[in-house]
């Protein structure tokens, strides 16, 4: 698939108040439909890059264009609109403990403006796609780590994002479950969604075998 890349980053730097730059003059293009791993040692800048992509933080320098949005020009309301096109998965799942699996997904569907029947339909659809339709009425605490992460992935898919970002999504899971989650990401990717996964699990990357960017001290040192 050619044409305009879904992510176009140029000269991106991020300096925190103290210490070394977290990102240095990073330039990167990601094509629509790609599956990419970002790896590298702790402190290399993986999370920082994903945070900047989600506009949880602002770059010190450089330009990020995603889905045609130049991220430096967005108003607060536009930032929310932009984020609706992006799914996000964290290492610690971040489910709402007081809500059931179904409610966790429906909550997101609701605050994205779906009607009640749309919410139910969509929630069922995404939970089915992660294989959890039979656990809809369970609370997060009653689920295994792998199941919780699958709920989080289902939730991230609710808005049907064109881009899915995951920061150490398997960091809390044992290797079998980790591979299972990666296969789920592959399936999602096969459906056309661009997927970017940050992880330092080299073994996992080897098993999945995809385009991999190696970050070190804020710059790309290796592309495989």
């Amino acid at each position: 698939m050619s044409g305009r890349p879904i992510i176009d980053i140029s000269g991106l730097s991020k300096l925190y108040a103290r210490g070394l730059p977290a990102l240095r003059e990073l330039t990167l293009a990601v094509e629509r439909g790609e599956f990419i791993f970002i790896t590298g040692p702790s402190g290399a800048g993986k999370s920082t890059l994903l945070r900047l992509l989600l506009l949880q933080d602002r770059p010190s320098n450089g330009r990020i264009v995603v889905n045609g949005y130049d991220l430096s020009t967005l108003s607060k309301a536009q930032i929310q609109e932009y984020r609706r096109g992006i799914g996000f998965v964290f290492q610690d799942f971040r489910l709402i403990p007081a809500k059931t699996v179904l409610e966790n997904v429906c909550f997101v569907a609701e605050v994205l403006g779906m009607t009640e029947s749309q919410q139910k339909r969509r929630a069922f659809q995404v939970l089915k796609s992660v294989g959890l339709q039979h656990r809809m009425n369970a609370y997060p605490a009653e689920l295994s780590g792998g199941e919780q992460q699958r709920v989080a992935i289902a939730r991230a898919l609710t808005s049907d994002p064109s881009l899915l970002l995951a920061d150490e999504p398997t960091g809390n899971l044992d290797p079998d479950l980790a591979l299972e989650i990666m296969n789920l990401f592959r399936e999602i990717n096969a459906g056309g969604t661009t997927v970017i996964v940050a992880t330092h699990d080299r073994e996992l990357i080897r098993l999945v075998g995809c385009r991999t960017l190696m970050l070190d001290q804020g710059t790309i040192v290796e592309v495989a």
Binding site: Q80, E81, R83, G113, R155
Partner: peptide, 14 residues
Amino acid sequence: EIRLMYLVGAPYRF
């Protein structure tokens, strides 16, 4: 919940 709403791009009215 609010942090999640920001992350998933919920409009401000929500």
